[in-house]
Nucleic acid binder design. Structure first.
Length: 480
RNA sequence: GGGAUUGUAGUCUAGCUUGGUAUGAUACUAGUCUGGGGGACUAGUGGUCGCAGGUUCAAAUCCUGCCAAUCCCA
């Protein structure tokens, strides 16, 4: 194996798909499991998920949402209670048909999503308006058999996610909750993962099966394809009726409740890899990086080593006292150059190099991962590290926004639409609101309506497909 | 859903056409020297050739089925 083969061997620009797979595997985020479509998360990958999870948990808690846990098996009779919902998921459900050697009469689904199970429970728990709102979030996995080619984090047959399920007394309150969650999602993804998102509604065709409407956040990836980053659904009474989620109001009149459900998954990790990674490997935003700062000590002999390591130890303790996640790479068998490349592959946001020259000058070399810039920082400026990490976080979002902006264009003419879609990206194009046009466009170009952004109503233009009066300007794109 | 390609040690790989018990590199272990961008030398360790059948005196190699992965197109 040559020197070049140790790291990422293809360029992000030239072979995006292969590049992505290599980054996931070589940065040791995940590996393939022995069953088609399943992956194993390794500690560096899981740590990112844990970081996201803790961010969301804090924000959910502030919004009065608590965590619960649901079982993985759902009887077919339950799953089938809401017909449209069932029809939408049935093709990709894994079924448990046996317990030991005995056949199970009412076969059991490995949950593709838990609305039916959660609401069966909710109907038992809710009696009065005093029981509402009921807001529970569940961190678990969902299973959906993927027939299409799978890709780590982006399309797998089992994925980590959270699904939140809330119940309200009024439509207004439920709809407000839908928006509140979407806002939490957007802020978290932008602040933590440094990925800009566009929020809005899904079209009728693309909405969650069983929902009244679906709100979504969408991002554009560097290869020009769109990725759905999270959804928040207004379920109306579509589930409360078949599942009899009812409450008695203050006048003791019984009503069906109003519900929402919402989720994000480890797809967000995939989005982060694609958005920020480069030809050297992964690039992690400081806020979610399991290791934010790696220190590489450099020394020539044992007595130099003692001196350097004691200095390094002091710096490490200093940074740790400021809640910075630091790792000292004291592996003696590897050269500094090897370590530099290794940590760049793993995406650690900031590297500190400390060697004899630095001790002499009372300073250290710091190298930023996202732009690979090196500079020096004197020992007495150590408190600046937190500021630098914050700046990196902000710069990464800024760069990602710029990248997204470059990948977005306005088009009103169909011929141009068809030619531009080949290059990928978000296309803002006026639309009449009819599903036929949406379907035709999908058929002819492969692009669908990713999101109808909030405030994109517009009746002054002509539908890009049928030339009738427009109702909005949705974002069209080919998606993952 | 359609097409193309692939599976040999942790990783990459030679061998397959023409069957005879697997090549090299890297990684790993030990030691010495080294150390500011993927170090050097020496000596070692590591293999159900993806899985299951079949053909054969003999299968990594030929045949059948299965499993898994990658890429491209819808």
């Amino acid at each position: 194996m040559s020197k070049e083969d140790v790291g990422i061997t293809v360029s992000k620009n030239e072979d995006f798909s292969e590049w992505y797979t290599q980054v996931v595997l070589k940065a040791k985020l995940a590996d393939y499991a022995p069953v088609k479509g399943l992956i194993v998360l390794r500690p560096d990958g899981y740590a990112i998920w844990e970081s996201l999870r803790s961010t969301f948990d804090k924000k959910f808690a502030k919004n009065g949402i608590r965590n619960g846990f649901l079982p993985i098996l759902i009887p077919e009779s339950l799953l089938g209670k809401e017909q449209k919902h069932f029809a939408g998921f049935n093709p990709e459900v894994f079924w448990v048909t046996h317990s030991g050697t005995n056949e199970i009469g009412d076969k059991l689904a490995l949950r593709p999503t838990s609305e039916t199970l959660a609401y069966t429970m909710y109907s038992k728990w809710i009696r009065s308006w005093r029981d509402l709102p009921l807001k529970i979030n569940f961190w678990n996995t969902a299973l959906r058999a993927e027939i299409k080619a799978t890709k780590p984090f982006l399309r797998t047959s089992e994925f980590l996610w959270q699904e939140g399920h809330t119940v309200h007394t009024t439509q207004e309150e439920a709809e407000k909750e839908v928006m509140k969650i979407l806002e939490i999602y957007k802020n978290s993804v932008e602040d933590e993962l440094a990925i800009p998102v566009t929020t809005g509604k899904k079209s009728e065709k693309e909405k969650f099966v069983g929902a009244v409407y679906t709100t979504t956040m969408e991002s554009i990836m560097p290869d020009g394809k769109a990725l759905q980053m999270g959804t928040s659904h207004f379920l109306g009474q579509n589930f409360s009726k078949p599942f009899e989620v009812k409450f008695a109001d203050k006048n003791n009149v019984e009503h069906f409740a109003w519900q929402t459900s919402w989720g994000i998954s480890w797809r967000l990790i995939g989005a982060m890899i694609m958005t920020h990674g480069d030809d050297k490997g992964l690039v992690l935003p400081p806020n979610v990086a399991p290791t934010q700062v790696v220190i590489v000590p450099i020394y020539k002999n044992d007595e130099g080593k003692e001196k350097i390591l004691s200095k390094v130890d002091g710096i490490k303790n200093n940074l740790e006292s400021k809640e910075i996640r630091v790792h000292v790479d004291d592996r003696s068998e590897l050269s500094p150059g090897y370590k530099f490349n290794d940590w760049e592959l793993k995406g650690v946001p900031l590297r500190i190099e400390i060697g004899p020259k630095d001790i002499e000058k009372q300073s250290m070399v710091i190298a930023k991962r996202y732009n690979r810039e090196k500079s020096t920082l004197s020992f007495n400026e150590i408190e600046k590290i937190s500021i630098i990490l914050d700046e990196i976080q902000k710069e990464m979002l800024k760069n990602a926004k710029e990248q997204a902006r470059k990948n977005t264009i306005d088009i009103s003419e169909y011929t141009e639409f068809k030619s531009k879609i080949e290059g990928g990206g978000f296309i803002n194009a006026p639309w009449c609101g009819k599903s036929e046009c949406e379907e035709k466009i999908k058929e002819e170009t492969g692009a669908d309506i990713r999101v109808i952004p909030f405030d994109s109503e517009n009746s002054n233009l002509k539908c890009v497909y049928c030339q009738e009066q427009s109702v909005s300007i949705p974002i069209f794109a080919r998606g993952y």
